[in-house]
């Protein structure tokens, strides 16, 4: 088959642990498994197109591929958020079960195809942290009036709790937090947050990340490009991405505890777990958000599929696991 030489625009910087490095890994692995037949060159966000524009660029074919998470496209295709991370949603095993065997993948591809994009899930992350707070939070009252950086569906939930959310890009968070322009931020997982130094300006670190129990990342490709590939080439990409999902999840589970040790023992960070009553109220707010979002028919369809699957899964999940 014809050689493939693609440009891939990333929505995350290539040095960012997991969020970016898993995308960089594609560059390397696809060349190895295809014996150099397929090359997908990683470009930093902004190098070809700004991060938020990757969708339109892949859709039009002005770039060949994109590295992102489906949740990025909330403003264009709300349903895609459910293929990235779901507040109070499933953890990795259950999420994969729904996606690969519960009808998720078909809907995912169908929705993307409407926009001339073919996408393959190509990375999976362990749970995120709930966020960094400058002050301790003891009740939902303490959340009210807080200014917080928050992304996606979780932001809607926080707004319902009286938090004023802002969408800041990765690098802008630190100075905003340092200056007190925001009081809190969610960003990612301990290993990533440690590198970014949030502990230098906020000392209270909250868990669990109710808004992102597991997060999918995807390799988006212009559909015409995808259709032009040979079956072997398509299989090479799918297989490489399957391996990237395995790699991302394992790596994510492996690197958090040492980061947490450093944060707690050397950086003087206080680690908190949300009390059950706050989690309950957040959950109630999330139900309201789902009702609002379900005005979008695709969102409603995907949500119903996921909910039905989860109800059935519970039969097994409650029995099969220790807790």
């Amino acid at each position: 088959a014809d050689r493939v030489r693609w440009k891939m625009a990333s929505t995350y910087g290539g040095k960012l642990t997991q969020l970016g490095t898993l995308g960089k890994r594609i560059e390397d692995r696809i060349e190895a498994v295809s014996d150099g037949n397929i090359q997908i060159k990683f470009f930093e966000p902004g190098a070809l197109v700004p991060a938020l524009e990757v969708f339109d660029a892949v859709s039009s074919g002005s770039i060949d591929a994109g590295w992102s998470t489906p949740g990025y496209w909330a403003g264009k295709v709300p349903a895609l958020q459910l293929f990235a991370a779901v507040p109070f949603g499933p953890s990795a095993g259950e999420y994969m079960a729904w996606y690969y065997f519960g009808g998720g993948q078909q809907m995912f591809e169908e929705i993307y195809h409407q926009h001339n994009i073919h996408s393959v899930q190509c990375g999976l992350l362990a749970p995120e942290a709930s966020g960094w707070f400058r002050k301790e939070i003891n009740s939902v009252e303490d959340l009210k009036g807080l200014k917080m950086r928050f992304f996606g569906l979780g932001a809607k939930v926080m707004e319902k709790m009286g938090v004023s959310t802002q969408l800041l890009a990765g690098g802008d968070i630190f100075p905003a937090l340092e200056l007190g322009t925001i009081d809190a931020t969610e960003f990612s997982m301990p290993a990533i947050d440690l590198n970014l130094g949030f502990y230098q300006v906020a000392k209270h670190y909250y868990f669990p990340g109710w808004h992102q129990q597991s997060t999918f990342f995807d390799l988006m490709m212009n559909k015409d490009n995808w259709d032009a590939l040979s079956e072997t080439q398509q299989a090479q990409i799918e297989t490489m991405c399957g391996d990237n999902v395995r790699y991302g999840l394992a790596e994510g589970e492996a690197i958090q505890f040492s980061a947490l040790k450093v944060l707690q023992e050397e950086k003087g960070v206080t680690i908190h777990r949300w009390p059950p009553e706050i989690l309950e109220q957040l959950h109630a707010a999330w139900e309201e958000v789902v009702a609002e979002q379900s005005q979008d028919p695709d969102f409603k369809r995907v949500w119903e599929s996921l909910s039905a699957f989860r109800a059935d899964y519970k039969i097994w999940g409650d029995l099969g696991y220790l807790d």
Binding site: G13, K15, E44, L196, G197, Q200, V201
Partner: peptide, 8 residues
């Protein structure tokens, strides 16, 4: 951002 290092 590009270096994934602390802005501080």
């Amino acid at each position: 951002d590009l270096l994934a290092t602390s802005v501080g």
